[in-house]
Each structure stands twice: as structure tokens, then as C-alpha cells.
Design a protein around this nucleic acid. Structure first.
Length: 895
RNA sequence: GGGGCCUUAGCUCAGCUGGCUAGAGCGCUACGUUGACAUCGUAGAGGUCACUGGUUCGAGUCCAGUAGGCCCCACCA
């Protein structure tokens, strides 16, 4: 589309509509994101945190996947074999919930379909909607290797899951047992500790009298936040050294409402200082009580059904009541029996199901567990030895703490959607068979077998993701080439759920860390600082943002707003203000290139660069570009994406557009001769091409679109493979930077004075200059025309000393020069005197500070030579300015 | 109960290993249609870097404490 006169095709406003999708298709057509193991020499690999297959893209995904895409594109441009492995997670509970809700609208439950029918139904749901989020990732530009898309429940990954289960079982690291687990009465399944979210809740502490069974009229008082569990009490405990109460050990109390006689026992767990020193013991509904129960061989009475209604273990009046109803009734009944001695407010942390937010019930239950300690050790060691790094670093502490105190992992779930537990129980001999292949009969006695009905925790497949996606347990070429992966980027919320467990799995099953660097990004919040969520309705749909402003605008905004590990705020009620930065920047880029394209031709670019001498502005912009490229590279290397974004922005807008383009405009028209024109055109194109590359990881679409319009490039060109800009160090040019600094200060000062005195912007002024430093003089010689044009000056008159007593404005440049702007009839002497006076005070202050430092012997000894030198230079230039300013002021005569 | 983080311009935030005459974007004020861009340009106002001490020649940056906010972990009922 760009062979001739491309400038005519670019509109004045950047409109990403259509451009982005067609570019994306072009990339796909070339299979540009695919890398085969055989071809990979220097792999850089990211395994995507697989979004739930039920998910629709939200801003959190938008941010995380933009970050990953930036890194992948950056490395790909650096000629590494960058592979980004995409996929989705079957998300056991979440997906089952979605399909069950679906069924409910037809008046059906999963039980109506039966297990097989239900699972089929979920699969068809997945087939229909499962690729939604994958498609959405393409919309925001993600350059995943789509040929490698995986699903945690597909055949290969299922095989990995089963292999892992069997291995751990054989190693004695998986066991089945009756323990207190977190039970979600709504999902009717066990949860892991991590899946129970503890939240501070305002509750009550009830003090209940338990009458002593053998001493009439006497009682002990226990305190509880959950009176309904008393129905399952099997003991009352005191601390063995509790002077007040230990004489009661061995006695019994009669459990109110139930009538059961239960013993008073002594156990270290009890805090004698708390309350009355007595604790009710409910081994089936509290983890501590469970432990006490073990030590004292107490009966465990589970008083609830799966849905947290009271079961047949409780007295008739309470049966069938929900636990909260039961609580109220228990309290009422105790009250009427005068057994409630007090109720006080009491805040405590209550667990909630991370999927449905129902209050979790600690409950005794037969489940499968993974012994974590042995897995944690190598994972901890890897971190301590510095082989595993977190960004920001502080998350290392969090990881270490969790790893050190890791508890066993409850992995069985009472769901239908997921990896079925590969365990069979023999009906005949009771043998427990754990197998890599499905069994139909007992391997011991040949009897009929039943497979465990439960499925595995979703995370039991996710924790294998970095290698299961590469073909493990087969020793595939992919696994050999692409494992370990390089960087993992994710949200801190799943540090334990996923990141820590992946590290353990990688070490255990492949013998190597799954990745070396873990990037934890912040949370996307709304204008009030609240987390974006469906229930609050304060989310922003990335696709809507893409539709309005383009993916690049969104990506730039997100990256620039998300400093490493910090949260970012966006306003869901004002998308424009939220994404304005990126949108405006994209527009700026568009127009800068549009302008340039109107002035450069293929001939300019092909000309031998040695034949046309570069001018000051050319040398300067090359130098600035060189520095910027180095900064951006360094920032990306250190995962400081926002710094890379900001550095590019400052360069493109603040230096390239504001100064270079402005200075070069006349030259491009040929006003300063053909050599000058050509030098400008060649430099312009070189630098433009360079910064388009620099921005490509963050803004892939617009840069790709514009680059192919540049002379020397065609539609077949792509920025995907870079090469990543690595400007020669020779481009860095201290002299040019100093001189351009003088140009900018000169122009800036003139503009400032004009503005201060309200000079008509159209009026051309003459400026008088005296005593320019060599830098200023050289700068002026090189760029007179530019200075005149940008300062709207008619001429610069050089004199030995600026006029005293004439009406006009004085200034002294840092770069070294006196300026005088003759302003007959405009300048008010008093105002000018006070303006200079203020400047004198300011400079004097700086000078005092600098002199104090230089006069301090300890500074002179202690500070590095470089710092001392800088202070000396500063002192000298401040002294000169000071002297000149004082002289100017005195020219006004005594104030 | 432990651990961590934050507090810098009106707003949202940068500021990495101490050298800062403290930055950006937005907002605000004034001026401006100088043919890339009004999704723009030029200039400007605006900060005792939460507070108190300490270390240091030098602290927004390091240390301790105080106040306020946030987060994570935790079996004291």
C-alpha cells in the first residue's frame, strides 16, 4: 500500500480501526510467532498464566499479557528465539459453576444429567466458548505461539497430571486421611488452605455455662464464636498448669442441650489467661480441637451435612437447620436455660470460599493430601541461593515465609469437572490401587474396582504448566529446548496458589527451576482505589478500550502507569481520561511520521551517509537516540517497563518532535541547501526508524504500520525481528549535546521573556547578546536560523556588553551569555528590576550552598572527585551569572 | 499476633546502588489556527518530599520511632 506518495494516505488523526486487525493477520500469516525446537538457538520462553477457560478478558489480563508481550517482543527483536506458550485452565470449580448455572436456567441440575452427561455438557461448553479469551488476547496484540496452545485438561496435560500423582504416591508424598479441611457448603467440596480467604469479620463471643455433671449447681464457663458447634463437643479443656481450674480435670460436665457427659481434660493448647481458662473441644469442626482430640483420643462428632445444615448427630430440634439458624436457636435455648453468661463483640478472621464467597466450614473429612515439606526444601534453597529472583524483590520474603511454613495440600475436590483421581478401590479385597492407566479390575485379587469419585484441585494441573505444556513426561525436543522457561509474569495473589507450587513441581519432576525471574505486577484499581470486579461493576473491558483508542494506546497507558509491582488506577467512568496518555502519544507518533514521510525519499536514505556532513541538530538527535536506546534496553532488561515507556515518550515527544523536527523543517524544504537537506533527511529517517523499533514491543501495531511506509521499507518488512536498535557509541556526542542545550536555553529564555512581557507572538524581535561562552557561540553559529525561527527573532546582534539604561529585558544564560531584549514602551523599569532581583536572590542561594560545600574540608575529602568537580563547575558558572545579574541591576540605578 | 508496603505538586504517580537547583502525565492560568499533530504549540503558577530524631561532608533516598492508609500471612477459643 505504500509504493508511491504514502504521505497522502495518512490521515491527520490516527485511527487504529482496521489497521490493527489487518496487521495481526499479516503476522499470523507469516507464522511469525512460532519457533520450532530444532531451530531454536537462544530460547527465551514465557509460559502464559493460563486464564480460566470461562474468563472474559479484563484489565488485569490486559496488563499482565501486555507485560509479557513486551518482554517477548523485545527478546524476539534481539534475535532470541522467543516463545510464548499460551493456553487456558479448566478451572474446576469456576467452570462447573458456570455450566451449572447454565443448566439451572433450564431447570436442571448436574444430577439430572448424571456425571458423564454433565462432563460432556461442560466439554461442549468449553468447545463453544473456550477460545473466547484466546481470541481476545490476539486483539490486544499478544504474540503467542498459537500452535502451542494448551488446555490443562487436554490429553497431554492429563497424562502429566496422572504421572505426577502416581509418582508422588509411590514416593509416599501423597496420602489419604481424615483431617479438618475447609469445606465450602455451597460448592460442596473441600478446598485447600489457599482457597479459603480469611477476612476479618465482626462476630460475637458467647460465654456458655457447662454444668458439672457431678457437682450440683457448679459449672464451668467456655467461650466460643460458634455456639452451634457445641452440639459436637466431646470435651472441655484447661491448661495443665492452670492453678484456678486444674483441680477439675478428670471431672465431667453435662453438655447443655445435648445431655452428653464429656470429660474435662488438661491440654497445653489452652491459654489459661484467656476468658475463664476453659475451652470447649469440638474435634470435628476446628483444627485445634482436632489436634487436642488426637492427643486425648476424643470422639469426633461431625454435626453437619454437606450443605452445612445440622445432621442427625444433633438433638432433634436442631436437625436440618442451617448452621446460622442453628446458632440462633442454640443461643436462644441456652438463654432460656440461663446458661448464657455473657455475649461480647469479637472480631475474628473467617474463611470464605474464593470462588463463591460462602463462609467456609472447617470440617472433618476424608481427603487426599500432598506432603509439602519435602517438596518445599529444594524450592526454598533455589531462592536462597539466588537462582530464583523476584521483581520486586520484596516478594521473595513472602515466598520464603510461605515456603518455610508450608502445610500439606488438600488436593481432592468433590466435583465432576477436572482430572479424576487415579485411584481405584477393590470391592473384594479393599486394595487401594493407584495407577497410570485406567483399571477395570483389582491387580491383587481380580475383583471389581471403583474409581475414586473425586477430581483433583485445578492447581494440581496448573503447577505442572511450565513443563506439561512442553510434552513432559516425554523427554521431547520441546522440553529439552524450552525448559526451563525464562520469565514468569503474574499477579501477587497467586504467588502461593501457583508460583510457589510451580517452583516445587519443576524442581521435583524435572529437576530444574521452571523459570528464573518472577515478575509480580500490581492490581488495576478504579478511580476510588477499589479493585476492579464484576460485582462492583467497576471493571473496564479491554476490548472496548481497543475499540475506542486502539490496542497500542491501551498498552502504552498500562505499561507507563504500572511501575514495577505498584498498583495503577483507571477510571471506569471516564475511559478517555484513563487512556488519553496512550491515545495522544499514538497520535503524536502518527503525525511525526506523517510529517517526515512528506519530506524524505528513498534517494535520501540510500545516499552514502559519509558524503553529507551532519549538522549540530543531526549530531544531537543521534546522540540522544543513542542514549535513549541504551536506557530503554537497560530498563527492559531489568523488567522496568514503565521506565522504558517513559524514556521513549520523553525522547519521541520532548526531543525528537519538539526540537529536532522543529529545527529541521526548513532544512527539509531545502532552505539551507541540498547538503543540509540531505543530512537532515537521512538523519531523520535513521532516527525515526530507530525509535519505531524501540517502541515496537510496547506499541506493536502503529509502529509496524508506520515503519512499512518509510522509504527503504516495504509492506513485506516487519519490525517483529528487529533488529533491536543498538546505535554505535560514537553517536554519543557530548559536544553536540552541550551546544544543543545552549540552543534550547537560548530559545527558551527568549520565549520566556516574550511571554512575561506579553509580546505579540507574531512580532519579530531583535535580541542583543554579549559575552557568549564558546558553547553558546558555536551553537549559535551552527543553528542561527533555527534559533531565530523558534524564538521568533529578527536578528541577533552581538555586542561587547549589553546596553545599560535602555528599556528592555535582561537575562543571563546558564550556558554562558548575556541577553538583552530591547522592548521600547513595553518594559516597566521597576518590574524588570524586581525580576532581576528575584533571580539574584535565587542564584545567591544556590551559590551560598555550593560554596559552603566547597569550603567544608570534610566534603572535599569525603566526596568523590567527580562530585567535587561538579560543584566547582557549578560554583564558577553561578559566580559568573551572579556577577552579570548584579551588574544588570545596577544599570537600573539605585532602586 | 507476625511480616511487608505506602505517605513526594490540586489529581495519578516516577525518583534503582545517598550528590536534586526534586520530575512526568493530567488538571489549572495566560497566550497561540507559525501547513505533522488543537488527540496540538509556547509560557507560567503549584512541593517545609507525612511527622520526630539519628547516621553522614551531604538524606526524598539509609536507620529508629510516631501518625495515617493499604496488603499478605496466622489454629488463641
Amino acid at each position: 500500500m505504500s509504493d508511491t506518495g504514502p504521505q497522502h494516505e495518512l490521515s491527520a488523526r490516527y485511527d487504529p480501526t482496521g489497521i490493527e486487525s489487518s496487521i495481526y493477520v499479516r503476522w499470523l500469516d507469516r507464522r511469525a510467532f512460532h519457533v520450532a525446537a530444532e531451530d531454536a538457538v537462544d530460547p527465551y520462553v514465557i509460559a502464559i498464566p493460563p486464564p480460566n477457560v470461562t474468563a472474559a478478558l479484563h484489565m488485569g489480563h490486559g496488563l499482565n499479557n501486555t507485560i509479557q508481550d513486551v518482554l517477548i517482543r523485545f527478546e524476539r527483536m534481539r534475535a532470541r528465539d522467543a516463545v510464548w506458550i499460551p493456553g487456558t485452565d479448566h478451572a474446576g470449580i469456576a467452570t462447573q459453576n458456570v455450566v451449572e448455572r447454565d443448566l439451572a436456567t433450564e431447570g436442571l441440575s448436574r444430577h439430572d444429567l448424571g456425571r458423564e452427561g454433565f462432563v460432556e455438557r461442560v466439554w461442549s461448553w468449553v468447545e463453544q466458548y473456550g477460545s473466547t479469551i484466546i481470541e481476545q488476547l490476539k486483539t490486544i496484540g499478544c504474540s503467542c505461539d498459537w500452535d502451542r496452545t494448551r488446555f490443562t485438561l487436554d490429553d497431554g496435560l492429563s497424562r502429566a497430571v496422572r504421572e505426577v500423582f502416581v509418582r508422588l504416591y509411590e514416593k509416599g508424598l501423597i496420602y489419604r486421611g481424615n483431617y479438618i479441611i475447609n469445606w465450602c457448603p455451597r460448592c460442596r467440596t473441600a478446598l485447600s488452605n489457599e482457597e479459603a480467604e480469611h477476612r476479618e469479620t465482626g462476630g460475637r463471643l458467647y460465654h456458655i455455662r457447662y454444668p458439672l455433671a457431678d457437682r450440683d449447681g457448679e459449672h464451668v464457663v467456655v467461650a466460643t464464636t460458634r455456639p452451634e458447634t457445641m452440639l459436637g463437643d466431646t470435651a472441655v479443656a484447661v491448661h495443665p498448669e492452670d492453678e484456678r481450674n486444674r483441680h477439675l480435670v478428670g471431672h465431667e460436665v453435662e453438655l447443655p442441650l445435648v445431655g452428653r457427659r464429656i470429660p474435662i481434660i488438661a491440654d497445653e493448647y489452652v491459654d489459661p489467661e484467656f476468658g475463664s481458662g476453659f475451652v470447649k473441644v469440638t474435634p470435628a469442626h476446628d483444627p485445634n480441637d482436632f489436634e487436642i482430640g488426637l492427643r486425648h483420643d476424643l470422639p469426633r462428632i461431625d454435626v453437619m451435612n454437606d450443605d452445612a445444615t445440622m445432621n442427625a448427630q444433633v438433638p432433634e430440634p436442631y436437625r436440618g437447620l442451617d448452621r446460622l439458624e442453628a446458632r440462633e436457636k442454640v443461643v436462644r435455648d441456652l438463654e432460656s436455660l440461663h446458661l448464657l453468661s455473657a455475649i461480647e463483640d469479637h472480631a475474628h478472621a473467617v474463611g470464605h470460599c474464593y470462588r463463591c464467597d460462602t463462609v467456609v466450614e472447617p470440617r472433618l473429612s476424608l481427603q487426599w493430601f500432598v506432603r509439602m515439606k519435602p517438596l518445599a526444601e529444594p524450592a526454598l534453597e533455589a531462592y536462597r541461593e539466588g537462582r530464583l529472583r523476584f521483581h520486586p524483590e520484596r516478594f521473595g520474603n513472602v515466598y520464603e515465609h510461605w515456603m518455610t511454613n508450608v502445610r500439606d495440600w488438600c488436593i481432592s475436590r468433590q466435583l465432576w469437572w477436572g482430572h479424576r483421581i487415579p485411584v481405584w478401590y477393590c470391592r473384594e479385597c479393599g486394595e487401594v490401587l493407584v495407577s497410570r492407566v485406567d483399571l477395570t479390575e483389582c491387580t491383587a485379587c481380580g475383583g471389581a474396582v471403583d474409581q475414586d469419585p473425586d477430581v483433583l484441585d485445578t492447581w494440581f494441573s496448573s503447577w505442572l504448566w511450565p513443563f506439561s505444556t512442553l510434552g513432559w513426561p516425554e523427554d521431547t525436543p520441546d522440553l529439552k529446548t524450552f525448559y526451563p522457561t525464562s520469565t514468569l509474569s503474574t499477579a501477587p495473589e497467586i504467588l502461593f496458589f501457583w508460583v510457589a507450587r510451580m517452583v516445587m513441581a519443576g524442581m521435583e519432576f524435572v529437576g530444574e527451576l521452571p523459570f528464573t525471574d518472577v515478575l509480580l505486577h500490581g492490581t488495576v484499581r478504579d478511580a476510588q482505589g477499589r479493585r476492579m470486579s464484576k460485582s462492583l461493576g467497576n471493571g473496564i473491558d479491554p476490548l472496548q478500550v481497543v475499540g475506542l483508542f486502539g490496542a497500542d494506546a491501551m498498552r502504552y497507558t498500562l505499561v507507563s502507569a504500572a511501575a514495577l509491582g505498584t498498583d495503577l488506577q483507571l477510571d471506569h467512568e471516564d475511559l478517555e481520561s484513563s487512556f488519553r496518555v496512550g491515545r495522544n502519544f499514538a497520535n503524536k507518533i502518527w503525525n511525526a511520521v506523517r510529517f517526515a514521510l512528506g519530506h524524505v525519499t528513498l534517494l535520501d536514505v540510500e545516499a552514502d551517509p559519509g558524503t553529507t556532513p551532519l549538522e549540530l541538530a543531526d549530531r544531537w538527535i543521534l546522540s540522544r537516540f543513542s542514549v535513549t536506546a541504551a536506557d530503554v534496553t537497560r530498563s527492559l532488561d531489568r523488567f522496568r517497563l514503565h521506565e522504558a515507556a517513559e524514556a521513549s515518550y520523553q525522547f519521541v515527544w520532548g526531543e525528537f518532535c519538539d526540537w529536532y523536527l522543529e529545527l529541521v523543517k526548513t532544512r527539509l524544504k531545502g532552505d539551507r541547501g541540498e547538503d543540509s537537506r540531505r543530512a537532515a533527511a537521512a538523519t531523520l529517517t535513521t532516527v525515526l526508524d530507530g525509535w519505531l523499533l524501540l517502541l515496537h514491543p510496547i506499541m506493536p501495531f502503529i509502529t509496524e504500520e508506520l515503519a512499512c511506509h518509510l522509504p527503504g521499507r516495504t509492506d513485506d518488512d516487519t519490525l517483529l525481528r528487529g533488529p533491536w536498535p543498538a546505535p554505535p557509541v560514537e553517536w554519543q556526542d557530548v559536544e553536540a549535546e552541550q551546544r544543543m542545550e545552549a540552543v534550547r536555553e537560548l530559545v527558551g529564555t527568549v520565549r520566556n521573556l516574550r511571554s512575561d512581557y506579553g509580546i505579540d507572538p507574531g512580532r519579530r524581535l531583535e535580541v542583543v547578546m554579549a559575552r557568549p561562552s564558546s558553547a553558546v557561540a558555536a551553537a549559535l553559529d551552527a543553528e542561527t536560523e533555527g534559533v531565530l525561527r523558534l524564538g521568533r527573532l529578527s536578528s541577533i546582534r552581538r555586542v561587547d556588553t549589553t546596553p545599560a539604561g535602555e528599556p528592555g529585558a535582561h537575562a543571563v544564560l546558564k550556558a554562558g551569555a548575556e541577553l538583552f531584549l530591547p522592548l521600547t514602551g513595553v518594559v516597566d523599569i521597576e518590574r524588570e528590576r524586581s525580576r532581576i532581583g528575584e533571580e539574584i536572590v535565587r542564584v545567591e542561594g544556590l551559590l551560598t550552598g555550593t560554596r559552603a560545600r566547597l569550603g567544608n574540608p570534610r566534603f572535599m575529602e569525603g566526596a568523590p572527585a567527580e562530585v567535587v568537580q561538579r560543584e566547582r563547575d557549578k560554583e564558577r558558572s553561578l559566580e559568573e551569572r551572579y556577577a552579570l545579574l548584579v551588574e544588570k541591576r545596577s544599570a537600573f540605578g539605585p532602586g
